[in-house]
């Protein structure tokens, strides 16, 4: 056996000192790096390489034979349909994230007040939308919205109300896709906010009560400041995921009516894969990258600063 712990007998101390390479290999940082190599390999091959390749593709001409720089991006910006896609993606992501955050916050507070065993049951039930594969649950929603046989319309008609063109009229279709996203994403906010609420020390509320603070004052001066980092990270994460949403629009409306529910991902698929213009499709999909990167930078910087202040 000749592992690193074995010392040869009779060799002078000076000669027994490990060499530079050996010392380097024994450093904790080297070992840590070596242990991270498999993860790095996965990240590089499945995240970094595809991202760089997508950037490269977005700078080629339609036939992918010539480098065109940022021409695809400037071309897209001049197209009214793409301008509409930008508007719709922002509307979809921002309104859905705000609604999910608000609903998640309210539900987390309600959940916090439910006693132990029942809370576990409700928590499990409310997580169901999040654990069902989105493509499958969206199909269920599609049946509820179906143009001809909508279950919602059946109920409305039963009460004497008119049928609603859930997926056929612009604003109803936009409402429907946002609704499904909110239904799907709220449990994520709920669980994150609930974990954050549980970590707020009870003494803070007790101290606030002694000072005569009411519910809203405790919420504003205790709960929200203590949850600020979680809220920031959750909103950032959800915003990125929601901007990249594909399944809901693809299944419910296919971008219609008249392209008025397309998001970056669905429009990118239509342009890149279905219409055979992969560079333009790549450009569409990368469009939000710089904006989201700047947003992420400021959010994460804020989180870091607050963490340092707390230490």
């Amino acid at each position: 056996m000749a592992d690193g712990a074995t010392l040869p007998i009779g060799v002078p101390i000076a000669a027994r000192r490990p060499g530079g390479m050996q010392r380097f290999m024994r450093q904790r940082s080297t070992i840590a790096f070596a242990m991270c190599v498999p993860l790095l390999a996965v990240v590089i091959s499945l995240v970094v390489y595809p991202a760089i390749y997508a950037i490269y593709l977005s700078m080629l001409n339609k036939k992918m034979t010539r480098f065109v720089g940022l021409d695809n991006f400037s071309f897209l910006l001049g197209r009214p349909t793409f301008q509409m896609v930008i508007f719709q993606s922002v509307l979809f992501a921002v309104s859905a994230v705000i609604l999910k955050a608000l609903l998640g916050f309210v539900l987390a507070h309600l959940m916090q007040n439910i006693p132990g065993r029942q809370q576990r049951l409700w928590r499990g039930l409310l997580l169901v939308p999040w654990v069902i594969p989105l493509a499958m649950s969206t199909l269920g929603w599609w049946w509820l919205f179906d143009p001809s046989y909508s279950a919602f319309n059946w109920v409305l008609n039963a009460f004497g109300g008119p049928s609603i063109p859930w997926l056929g009229a612009t604003w109803w279709a936009r409402f429907s896709v946002i609704l499904v996203n909110v239904w799907y994403g709220t449990p994520f906010f709920l669980i994150m906010y609930l974990a954050a609420l549980k970590s707020v020390p009870e003494q803070l509320y007790e101290a606030a009560s002694i000072d005569g603070a009411g519910f809203w004052q405790k919420l504003w001066h205790v709960t929200l400041p203590m949850m600020r980092n979680v809220i920031s990270i959750t909103v950032l994460f959800s915003l990125i995921i929601t901007f990249a949403n594909f399944d809901i629009v693809r299944i419910l409306t296919n971008g219609g009516p008249q392209d008025q529910t397309h998001l970056f991902a669905t429009y990118s698929f239509q342009v890149g894969i279905q219409s055979g213009d992969i560079p333009l499709g790549a450009a569409v999909s990368l469009f939000m990258l710089p904006i989201l990167a700047v947003f992420a930078y400021f959010v994460l910087r804020g989180v870091n600063e607050r963490s340092k202040e707390a230490m």
Partner: peptide, 12 residues
């Protein structure tokens, strides 16, 4: 035509 044909898919 039915009013909802604008949102029909290939199965409708």
């Amino acid at each position: 035509l039915p009013g909802d044909v604008y949102s029909w898919d290939d199965a409708s």
